[in-house]
Simulated assay, not measured.
Amino acid sequence: MIYAIVNIKDKQFKLVENKYIYVPHISAKIGDKILLNQVFLFYKEGKLLLGYPFLDRISIEIEILQHIKGKKIFIFKKKRRKGYKVKNGFRPLFSKIKIISFLEKKQ
């Protein structure tokens, strides 16, 4: 099993080859292929590589499959005994990505 832990939009995700994952919205078109190079950890065949903070030799190729909205998140503010109530909400944007391959550069 090969996997990596990467930084996408200041959040860390575990990526496994040929799997799908939902990440915060990436501003690229559907079908675009992107290289991720902020890799914290890489595991392959019993070997574990840790970056400090990132690994320079490893990059990950992903493909954007879909852009979707998540479930609605409600924000409710209230101050007791003052009659103040505010209810707002929003639906966060996500991108569905597929991990195509892990690329290792030779040094």
Score class of each variant (00 low, 15 high):
I5Q: 01
I5H: 01
N7V: 08
N7F: 04
I8A: 04
D10T: 11
K11H: 09
K14L: 10
L15A: 06
V16P: 03
E17N: 08
E17L: 08
E17D: 06
N18S: 14
I21N: 03
Y22V: 03
H25E: 12
I30V: 15
K33S: 13
K33Y: 03
K33P: 00
L35G: 01
L36I: 11
L36C: 01
Q38F: 12
Q38A: 14
L41M: 12
F42T: 01
F42W: 07
F54T: 05
L55Q: 00
L55A: 02
D56I: 04
R57D: 11
R57Q: 12
R57S: 12
I58L: 00
I58Q: 00
S59P: 06
I62Q: 03
I64E: 04
I64L: 15
L65G: 05
Q66I: 08
H67F: 11
I68K: 14
G70L: 06
K71C: 03
K71N: 13
I75P: 04
I75V: 14
K77G: 07
K78C: 10
R81V: 15
R81G: 08
R81T: 15
Y84F: 15
V86S: 12
K87T: 12
R91Q: 08
R91N: 11
P92A: 14
F94P: 02
S95M: 09
I97T: 09
I97G: 05
I97S: 02
I97H: 02
S101C: 08
F102H: 03
E104R: 04
E104W: 04
